[in-house]
Write a protein that binds this DNA or RNA. Structure first.
Lengths: 246, 246
DNA sequence: CTGAGATTAATAATCATATAATATGTCCGG
DNA sequence: CCGGACATATTATATGATTATTAATCTCAG
């Protein structure tokens, strides 16, 4: 009679959202129709309440659309809300593509230099301390005393917050999510130590209140990432010794 | 026994989301605690299912947080997802502030010039036709033959889509929502006819494939809006004949 | 008095079931 | 061939009961 006491770090509903979200983005329902409410409940052993709420959340993320009698359907990919950290994470983790990573980096190239410039003109002492703390974590990480990915993310988050602009700050969860996967990729290509100096340049410019220089430094930083991705995307024939792709 | 047949354009759940969302952003629960599940059902005459699903959607938008025993609470404003069109609309319509509008425009200033540059380098014939169509609607609107707000929005949407970058395209619903209110404001300050030429410059640059010029033109366009807002925000003493604010 | 640990109680989370509303297709009469 | 009545599948809504979680309270040894 005693339930197995499965400790779940999240509720049943969120667990189901996670499971279904990953299935959807990987195209599990591209050929077969999306299950009906009752079928979902049976397949995943959850009540209809839980099922319904999970479907509702996925609808809010733009992945599903439910209508009476017609059933629940997966929407076309262009309607998926990439700005939602969950959706973005599912795509990058379960259906990774350099193309998507390139598009994401392209957007960072628009956002973050502007954020650095705003930070230079407006960051208060506390905000600058946060940026500095991120940089110091990167230094520590290069010595093996901190987690390099977390350190890098802390730096970029601090810059976004330092803008004092709520919209830039709101982009943080999404950028953090993608950055985590992005770094995983770029780390395989080049060492981290090299660009700590570039991050330092960004901080210096912000402290000096020089928005233009801060933007340029940030642009250089992200531009390099974009180039790395573009290189990896280039047809293998253009690279030495690459395996032919077909 | 016949139900009153109230035609509801949206479901009960979405109606409740709308109602509660507006109440939350206007601070209706700043002093009093947020009602419990059962109380909400009674107050709004909806079932617990509907109530729960509405709460879940507002949780996804970052406005609420529900925990057993503690109840459901309104989160701190910094956690509200401004990138969600609903949240943004509620804020701008029900709790308008020039400060928020300024921050939004600041972000457009980062996004849209970059989008214009990308469009210049990548837009295909179809995408350019969409931008041109938007511009032509603006012309028509200046003659009273179209809706000026819709025309302006169509133009900016077309540029975002023309980037071929899914992230820029995804920003569209949010920018559209805020633009609708933004234009309502700036229209009160200046006539629209003046800046059609500037929009034309953006299109010309994109057609010519000149990303830098396209970005500059777009930046000028949005920069003017930001200046308008900044002027309106300036302390009344700095303006001629303004009423004292206290 | 104090603090750690056990107990209680309030509330969301989940489950189960029933009814209503709404599209979608089918069939029949014209 | 067409249009409307009707059947049907599925989501939407409603309701009551049970379970899990956790803040608050109480207990009691120190």
């Amino acid at each position: 009679m005693a339930q197995p006491r499965i400790p779940r770090e999240r509720s049943l509903t969120y667990g189901l959202v996670e499971t279904l979200g990953q299935l959807i983005v990987t195209g599990a329902f591209a050929t077969q129709p999306f299950p009906t409410e009752g079928e979902l409940s049976r397949q995943h052993g959850t009540s209809r309440s839980v099922t319904r709420e999970a479907v509702k959340m996925l609808t809010a993320k733009g992945l599903l659309r439910a209508r009476p009698r017609q059933g629940t359907n997966v929407t076309v990919e262009s309607q998926w809300n990439l700005l939602d950290p969950d959706v973005l994470r599912w795509l990058l983790e379960r259906k990774f593509s350099l193309q998507l990573l390139a598009e994401f980096t392209e957007m960072r190239l628009a956002i973050e230099p502007a954020a650095a410039a705003l930070a230079a003109s407006r960051a208060d002492r506390e905000a600058i301390e946060q940026i500095r703390a991120g940089l110091e974590r990167m230094h520590a990480a290069s010595q093996g005393d901190d987690e390099p990915v977390a350190a890098d993310i802390a730096f970029h988050t601090a810059v976004l917050v330092a803008t004092g602009n709520r919209f830039f700050a709101q982009l943080d969860p999404m950028i953090n999510t993608a950055l985590r996967i992005s770094i995983r990729f770029t780390n395989r290509i080049k060492g981290r130590a090299a660009d700590i100096a570039q991050h330092e340049e960004v901080l210096d410019a912000i402290v000096a209140g020089d928005g233009e220089r801060a933007a340029l430094a940030m642009r250089a930083l992200i531009g390099e990432v974009l180039e790395l991705i573009a290189t990896a995307q280039a047809p293998p024939a253009a690279r030495r010794g690459g395996r032919s792709s077909a």
